[in-house]
Design a protein around this nucleic acid. Sequence first.
DNA 1: CTCTTATTAAGAATAAGTCTTGTTAAGGAG
DNA 2: CTCCTTAACAAGACTTATTCTTAATAAGAG
Lengths: 150, 150
Amino acid sequence: MAGAPRNTKQKQAVYEALTCLDHPTATQVYEYVHVGHPTLSRGTVFRVLGGFAANGQVRRVTLEGSDARFDHTLAPHAHGMCRVCGRICDIFLPDYEAIAKDARTDGFEIDGCEVEFTGICKECSEKMRRGAKEEYKEKYDERTQGKQDA
Amino acid sequence: MAGAPRNTKQKQAVYEALTCLDHPTATQVYEYVHVGHPTLSRGTVFRVLGGFAANGQVRRVTLEGSDARFDHTLAPHAHGMCRVCGRICDIFLPDYEAIAKDARTDGFEIDGCEVEFTGICKECSEKMRRGAKEEYKEKYDERTQGKQDA
DNA sequence: CTCTTATTAAGAATAAGTCTTGTTAAGGAG
DNA sequence: CTCCTTAACAAGACTTATTCTTAATAAGAG
């Protein structure tokens, strides 16, 4: 009969990496699995992650100024990117569905929604509060401004 | 004294392209300006667009599965990406600021918000309504699924 | 065990975006 | 007008995430 998808070691390793890492990029997944599976190739990581995303097992998240990231948390939620350290946080909205309410879409039929926040994560704002403001200002500016321009 | 930024022909041409094109990528801007200014280089387009984004003259928008796009509309608004044709539409929300209200941020201090909708644009849904469903189903699937995987 | 076929490893290919270097030109001073 | 300083530029090399190609491998059915 028609070939069914197979649950290979490679797929299991990639999925496990997603549960251990925090919103990793494909490259971060590759580096993680490469330790335990030295022959697992970069191309396989991209292909497997793409497959997971296509069938809804994981979410592919594209954030401003960053490579694609993969999230195994399926419940609807937004993301926050820290302007200082770049970390991605999950942010849950009480009424995610309501965002599109009363939107002036001019005929566009909405069927999905992604929300990205920017700001400063808990750890960085605590560090800033106890000094080191200069250091964080630098990183903030670096991450906030265009990269090529000073 | 210190050199002031200059308003050069190149910058003017790039900005004009943004007003004529609809949410273009940097490459689309380059192709547009290249007609009237054959010597205006790719690097300059990227640098100028980055500069505009850094000082807030334009918005840089990164949407799922697409290169960075540039938007000269400064009023806060969301974007909708058509799953069939890929077009980007502006979508205005009546209360953009309210989105972060009651968000469970766990210490993340929000200072900015981007909203991306997916769906089907007016033109495509009209075309689908008068037949051609097969054709559009194909494009929809192509654009929705991972690219590498079938 | 054997066959079919999905899956993989390896690495070449693509393309967005960045960076470097030598050149040009805007605009102020004389 | 001419000279000088420096922002801005063109050209093209470079980087790197992602995709594609091809030949080899290994699930899983029979």
